[in-house]
């Protein structure tokens, strides 16, 4: 179980893995995530499911190497197995016919955005996607996003591909020209903060999918606390998607750094090897 059957390098830091897990492939919905553990000393960490094939019994995960655990996952080769994989977790995205959807993904956030774009399109919505990254080599899954979008705008910080500028510039362009019924943003917390501020100006209902620190992923530990509308919520059982305009992103950014010093030490030790 949990055997890697396909591995693709989007860049040297971003890797796509197709993993065998019949049950999760069948039961997952857009927006769900899994918890993984690599090796007997491994830590538990969440990843949003990027795609699934219920016939083949596989799920797709996209991982960016940022620390020890993501590096261990990325180091697994075809034929090797993920020690522990559990899910699907979190509430699925609320998919229905809403009209026009603005789907925004930054960096590896495009991976969890993909199944949501697909589901909204299949539900009959017009979908305009804006995908963004620092530079061309970090733009991922463009063709797949195009397949389920009516229009795609690509933004890069350095202008090496698509248009130059931040994701918010692409969003503004779409919002100026047509009526958006709902927006979904997924990406680094800082990007989601500014994307959310952009749609707030225009009062467009917006959902953001959060990537909080988690241990169990089932509501037990509370590591993933986030303040939404002044109330503490748990990303794992109440989310991972919340009303973006109500999320306290500054607190979220602070909480993502909760184990920074421990992580830096661990990284130094691991990557030195």
């Amino acid at each position: 179980m949990n055997k890697i059957v396909e591995k693709e390098y989007f860049s040297d830091k971003v890797i796509r893995l197709v993993v065998e897990n019949q049950k999760i492939a069948r039961s997952r919905k857009a927006g769900n995530f899994v918890i993984l553990r690599i090796g007997e000393k491994g830590e538990r960490f969440p990843l949003t499911i990027a795609d699934a094939d219920p016939v083949k019994g596989t799920i797709t995960l996209v991982v960016q190497i940022v620390g020890v655990s993501s590096a261990k996952l990325a180091a697994l080769e075809v034929g090797e197995c993920i020690t522990d994989l559990v899910g699907p977790l979190g509430k699925p995205t609320d998919i229905e016919l809403k009209g026009t959807i603005l789907a925004c993904g930054g960096g590896v956030g495009v991976a969890p955005l993909l199944p949501i774009v697909e589901a909204f399109k299949k539900a009959g919505n017009r979908v305009v996607s804006v995908i963004a990254a620092r530079s061309k080599d970090l733009i991922i899954l463009e063709d797949q996003i195009r397949r389920w979008s009516d229009e795609v705008i690509v933004m890069t910080d350095d202008g090496s591909y698509g248009r130059q500028g931040l994701i918010t510039a692409g969003m503004e362009e779409v919002i100026q020209r047509e009526k958006i019924d709902e927006c979904i943003v997924i990406g680094p917390a800082i990007m989601m903060k500014f994307a959310s501020l952009t749609t707030k100006k225009y009062a467009i209902p917006t959902q953001a999918s959060l990537n909080s620190i988690m241990v169990d992923g089932t509501g037990m530990c509370g590591a993933c606390r986030v303040t939404v509308g002044g109330k503490t919520r748990f990303t794992c059982v109440d989310g991972p998607e919340f009303d973006a305009h109500e999320i306290n992103f500054d607190e979220m950014l602070m909480r993502l750094g909760g184990y920074k010093s421990e992580e830096l030490l661990a990284n130094a030790k691991y990557f030195q090897k």
């Binding site: 169990d216 530990c221 590591a223 607190e251 909480r255 750094g257 909760g258």
Partner: peptide, 14 residues
């Protein structure tokens, strides 16, 4: 209460 370094006993013990 959501500052870093404040956690549930469940999280700490787990």
């Amino acid at each position: 209460e959501n500052f870093n370094g404040i956690l549930s006993s469940n999280e700490y013990l787990t």
